[in-house]
Design a protein around this nucleic acid. Structure first.
Length: 466
RNA sequence: GGCGACGUAGCCAAGUGGUAAGGCAGCGGUCUGCAAAACCGCCAUCCACGGGUUCGAAUCCCGUCGUCGCCUCCA
């Protein structure tokens, strides 16, 4: 069974074959850093983290690059409003985002290039495009890409150049030969960061940066180029036009796009202002909750985000965690062990089959839940020993491929732990004395504080709510 | 207006030609002093609606309705 990936370029799922055997190059478009990142940005990072983890688990070496757009109209505007330096502002948001990715258990990329540190490569890229007559310098100091020079322009988004004409526009101050052309280089305006170039002082346009950074970090041809599906047009379309016009080779062999987070039926976005920031989410929930939410449906479909869904996801996570509770019995072989071993292998192969099918994480989770049931059943049957721990190890391994930490959120409670243990001891005495009403009051009061007590044959255990 | 996606139980959601995964919630049971957790059982004759193709369709085709995205900065 081989990995199949859906390619936006061909609108088909096809078997994955990296350009270099065993090695995968993956470029993912990162955010423009001018405000707090929201869970839509987190979703994209999580999706490609899962892709990367699965590829690595499957035996590939992955070179993963994610960029930051740190030179941009909105950054400049924000910085001017706040009286801050635009680079300082962009850098602080980028650093915060990196810290949040760490909290979200997203593996660090191999490189995080930025526009501000790629200017020489961008200028060289544009010069080469002009030489090839795919771009031209306008009298006002702007440089534009000539869309008409690119005969397969529109192939990613399935748009026809002639259909786009009516929709295209020329902003005030632009000096294009054709309304469809887009800026590679923008002439400097007063008060804006600018660099020297053959066309005078200026700064790069939006799309060229990714072409240049991808070329610099990963070479002319890459395996996977990813991002949100709102980037298909114009951003990724334009990247293809620039890079392929320069290299005369096909750029990315697979274009992967994740769906948008839907909040109250609308796309969550900075411009709509209907967003939940990563930091607000993480204040109320663990990182695993967001990851599990993303894993629960197809990465390509819109992600339904409501408070109800978040609450359901927390309970799902509790269920996954139940598989990690220790064995209780002393049986180490027999029918229970055989059944668990069979379930373990079934789960592993179901997991792989689902993930091989275009990263069907919902199907992979189903395989995990089947293993949860099998492990809990075995525990109830009194199984312990290597058969039991081996199943738990497989469970942890597969959950780890999805990037789930599956840690009990007890760290915050360490200060309270001695007091909770004390209350449990007192409550045990009350139960011995059959003082049920008082014992229940202790349990209820702790429950209201987020501490769940569970009475088992071996005594009372406690855990924090997710 | 153009391009594209989608519409599966109370909720989330997988499944893209062979007769509906999984989770949450709910209901019944085992266990428990009672709970909780765990386990067992139940929970869509049916996949927006109307036609069509086929031995056979949630899955393919046509139409209708609805939702969303892109077409301008956007993960």
């Amino acid at each position: 069974m081989a990995l199949v990936i859906y390619n936006t370029l061909t609108r088909q799922a096809t078997p994955f074959e990296p350009l270099k055997p065993g090695e995968v190059s993956m470029y993912v478009c990162g955010p423009t850093v001018y405000s707090d990142a929201h869970i839509g940005h987190a979703m994209s990072a999580l999706v490609f983290d899962i892709v990367r983890r699965y590829l690595e688990w499957s035996g590939y070496t992955v070179r993963h690059v994610m960029n930051f757009t740190d030179v941009d109209d909105k950054i400049i505007k924000r910085a001017n409003e706040a009286g801050r330096d635009p680079f300082e502002l962009a850098n602080s948001y980028a650093e915060t985002f990196l810290e949040q990715l760490k909290q979200l258990n997203v593996l660090p990329a191999n490189a995080y290039p930025r526009v501000s540190t790629t200017i020489p490569e961008i200028v060289a890229f544009i010069e080469a495009l002009i030489q090839k007559e795919a771009a031209y310098a306008a009298p006002n100091g702007d440089v534009y890409f000539s869309v008409r020079s690119d005969d397969d322009y529109g192939k990613l988004s399935r748009r026809l150049v002639d259909d786009m004409r009516s929709g295209a526009r020329i902003a005030p101050g632009e000096d294009k030969d054709d309304p469809l052309d887009f800026a590679l280089w923008k002439a400097a305006k007063p008060g804006e960061p600018a660099w020297d170039s053959p066309w005078g002082q200026g700064r790069p346009g939006w799309h060229i940066e990714c072409s240049a950074m991808s070329l610099k970090e990963l070479g002319a041809q890459i395996d996977i180029h990813g991002g949100g599906n709102d980037l298909i047009f114009p951003h990724h379309e334009n990247e293809i036009a620039q890079t392929e016009s320069l290299t005369d080779k096909s750029f990315a062999q697979i274009w992967m796009h994740n769906g948008m987070v839907q909040l109250a039926g609308e796309k969550m976005s900075k411009s709509l202002g209907n967003l939940i920031t990563i930091s607000a989410f993480l204040d109320a929930n663990s990182a695993d909750v967001l990851r599990l939410l993303v894993l629960s449906s197809s990465y390509r479909a819109p992600l339904t985000y409501t408070e109800e869904v978040v609450a359901d996801t927390k309970r799902k996570l509790e269920r996954l965690l139940s598989a990690l509770r220790p064995a209780l019995g002393s049986t180490s072989a027999g029918a229970a062990a055989d059944e668990l071993r069979a379930a373990q292998e079934q789960s592993r192969s179901d997991f792989k089959a689902a993930m091989d099918d275009d990263f069907n994480t919902a199907g992979a989770l189903a395989a995990l839940f089947e293993l949860v049931r099998a492990i809990n059943t075995a525990r109830d049957a009194g199984l312990s020993g290597s058969a039991f721990t081996s199943a738990q190890d497989t469970f942890k391994e597969l959950a780890g491929v999805l990037g789930l930490r599956l840690e009990q959120p007890q760290q915050q409670a360490t200060d309270a732990a001695p007091f909770i243990d004390l209350l449990i001891t007192l409550r045990s005495d009350l139960r011995q004395a059959k003082q049920w009403a008082l014992a229940d009051r202790v349990r209820d009061a702790l429950s209201n504080l987020g501490v769940i007590l569970e009475d088992g044959p071996q005594g009372t255990t406690w855990r924090m709510e997710q």
